[in-house]
C-alpha cells in the first residue's frame, strides 16, 4: 500500500465525506418530518389523505432508492420538473426515509396499550391531552431503536448518490480508481471514511438503546 498516495487523496475524501454528511443529515431530517406528518394523518384517519399516505409508504418502501433517484433525476425533467443533484439526493433520501419512519412511528404508537388511553380519558383528559401527555411520550420512547436503525440505513443508502453525479465517497473512490488504478489504496480509504461516518452513529445507537431498555425495565 502506498501511504503517500493515500495521503494525497485525503482532501478529496474529506470533501466527499462532508458532502455525504450534509446531504445525509438533511435527508434524515426530511425523513423525520415526512414520517411525522404521515403518521399524524394515519392516526387521525383523515379521509383521502390517509389513502394517499398509505400508497406513498408502500410505494417507497417497496422500491430501491437507486430507482427512485433515477426517476426523480432523469425522468421528471422530461415533464418539466428539474432539480439540482444535491436537492434530488436530499429529496430522495427524505422520501424513502419518510416511508420507513412512518412505519416506525406507527408501530411505536401501536405499542402503547389501548388501556393507557382509556385510563387517561377516565381521568377526564381530552383525547388531545391524552395523546400529548400519555401516548406520544411512550410511543416516541419505543420508536427510538427503529428510528436509529432507519438513520443508519439512510446514511448507508447515500452510497448510491454517485449515480446522479454527486461527488460523494463512492464517486470519489470510483473516479480515483479509474484515473490512477490505485485500487487498494482507494478502497481502504473508502472503508475508513464510511467507518468515520457510521461507526459513531452505530455506537451511539447501541448506548441509547441500552439506556432506553434500562429505563423501560429498570434493570
Amino acid at each position: 500500500m502506498d501511504l503517500a498516495v493515500m495521503q494525497s487523496y485525503l482532501p478529496l475524501y474529506r470533501d466527499a465525506l462532508f458532502l455525504t454528511l450534509r446531504i445525509g443529515w438533511q435527508g434524515v431530517f426530511l425523513a423525520l418530518v415526512f414520517g411525522l406528518v404521515c403518521v399524524i394523518i394515519l392516526h387521525l384517519k383523515i379521509p383521502v389523505l390517509k389513502t394517499l399516505t398509505g400508497f406513498y409508504v408502500e410505494l417507497f418502501r417497496n422500491t430501491p432508492l437507486l430507482v427512485q433517484l433515477f426517476f426523480l433525476y432523469f425522468a421528471l425533467p422530461r415533464i418539466g420538473i428539474r432539480m439540482t443533484p444535491e436537492f434530488t439526493g436530499c429529496l430522495g433520501l427524505g422520501l424513502i426515509g419518510g416511508a420507513y419512519m412512518t412505519e416506525t412511528f406507527r408501530s411505536g404508537l401501536e405499542s402503547v396499550p389501548k388501556i393507557q388511553e382509556e385510563s387517561a380519558q377516565s381521568l377526564g383528559m381530552t383525547p388531545l391531552l391524552a395523546f400529548r401527555h400519555v401516548i406520544l411520550p411512550q410511543a416516541v420512547a419505543s420508536s427510538v431503536p427503529g428510528i436509529l436503525a432507519n438513520v443508519i440505513f439512510l446514511l448507508k443508502e447515500t452510497s448510491v448518490f454517485s449515480t446522479i453525479s454527486l461527488m460523494d465517497l463512492m464517486f470519489t473512490a470510483k473516479d480515483l480508481i479509474g484515473m490512477y488504478a490505485k485500487t487498494i489504496e482507494c478502497l481502504v480509504l473508502l472503508v475508513i471514511f464510511y467507518l468515520i461516518m457510521l461507526l459513531p452513529v452505530s455506537v451511539a445507537g447501541s448506548v441509547l438503546e441500552r439506556r432506553l431498555r434500562h429505563a423501560e425495565f429498570g434493570d
Binding site: 382509556e118 387517561a120 377516565s122 381521568l123 383528559m125 400519555v134
Partner: peptide, 30 residues
C-alpha cells in the same frame, strides 16, 4: 369523566412518569 374515577384490573399507571407525576398530571392539566 372528571367526576367518575375508575381503577382498572391492570393498574395502568403511566410508565414514563414518576408516582407523584402520575397522580398530579390530570389534576394539573385537566
Amino acid at each position: 369523566r372528571e367526576k367518575i374515577g375508575m381503577v382498572f384490573q391492570s393498574y395502568d399507571l403511566f410508565p414514563h412518569r414518576t408516582i407523584l407525576d402520575n397522580i398530579t398530571l390530570a389534576p394539573m392539566k385537566v
